[in-house]
Write a protein that binds this DNA or RNA. Structure first.
Lengths: 193, 193
DNA sequence: TTTATTTATTAAACTAGTTTAATGTTTTGA
DNA sequence: TCAAAACATTAAACTAGTTTAATAAATAAA
């Protein structure tokens, strides 16, 4: 059950078999059917999750009712609201399954236990947070400098497997444009070819 | 010389006087005159810095020659290109002093020494990276959902002391708009009052 | 299988933000 | 202290992206 998780940890740091086992034993599996929520706005996020099956979206709803997608998570990705989780304040985010999904969950308490007792875990999460931060910095620069059209093209090139599983509405909410405009972009690209 | 730095560390984690002293001794002071660079595109970023005086901007130049500002750093802020620093690949960023500045620098080697020998330092940087990541997530959502006008207003409210030290050109590059449009926004706001 | 719901597309009017260029103001530096 | 450079503002034409609404196509539900 935790095979994918072990593989994922090994990608970031080298951890002894023993420590890996101990750490993984702190997770429990949760099944999340399509359209249900792992987290809702207003709740305090008390977990960190590792997706082993399915697809989630992590999004915000602004005061005008529009949704902005912070990121998607498929197999092998981690999900949490790091803001709510670390500060223990109510979340501004929703985490929703877009497909029937399976996720390995570790509670805040158990994660703190791991930090205190498995010295390498601190490094694991430092390294992972750094990597996601770098990715977000790049996305920030892209959003500041590139047109919606090139952001869309780059998104489809970078995550082809993800694009097939997403509606254009979801992709538009990630790119920060309307689905109507995304439709125009897609038409323009199709004509070019 | 490292008083500000010690104070900053204490804000994030509790570290013994001895460990604090050891860690701070790894930094050396650098003076960066206005308009000179701490890092240029193409260089590998081999340091992490803590600003004790002055003002920096961390920015990217896109292929059309436009500048996007990732963040500013004044006294008490950390600066590095975390991407280049961790992956040891050439940077896509410039770090430039906008005022005569002073910065405490720790080299990659010494930082690794600290990770290996001062167990709490791993936590320090995990916590700091988490906090900057949360801030960037919030900015990402704002950029996806808010108009330039409200982003400008919120920026001036959040960083009033910074706004006074920045030209409108710099603020516009941070907000992701042209300085001409920022001028329009400022006029509109002034008329309202 | 039929109906209801969600999704994608198109069009047309609109608005937020850009571009270019000109003008006055402030800052910098020799 | 004077000239040059950088900065802020304004105007006017333009373009990227939105809004609303209608229609067709695909999916889900009963």
């Amino acid at each position: 059950m935790t095979a994918l998780l072990k593989q994922n940890i090994a990608k970031h740091i080298s951890l002894s078999a023993n420590e890996t086992e101990q750490f993984c034993s702190l997770f429990e599996q949760k099944l999340i059917p399509k359209k249900s929520f792992l987290l809702r706005e207003g709740e305090i996020c008390k977990f960190e999750g590792f997706v082993t099956k399915g697809l989630f979206r992590v999004y915000h709803i602004d005061k005008n009712g529009f949704e902005q997608i912070l990121y998607f998570a498929i197999e092998n990705w981690w999900i949490t609201d790091i803001d709510s989780f670390t500060t223990e304040t109510p979340s501004h985010l929703f985490i929703e399954a877009l497909e029937d999904s399976e996720v390995l969950i570790i509670s805040k308490k158990d994660k703190e236990f791991a930090y205190a007792n498995l010295p390498q875990i601190e490094k694991l999460f430092r390294v992972m947070t750094q990597k996601t931060h770098v990715a977000l910095q790049r996305r920030m620069i892209d959003n500041l400098s590139k047109t919606a059209e090139s952001r869309y093209i780059e998104f489809t090139e970078k995550y082809p497997q993800l694009v097939q599983r997403l509606s254009n509405i979801q992709i538009a909410a990630y790119l920060g444009i309307t689905n109507v405009f995304l439709s125009n972009i897609r038409k323009k690209i199709a004509v070019k070819k």
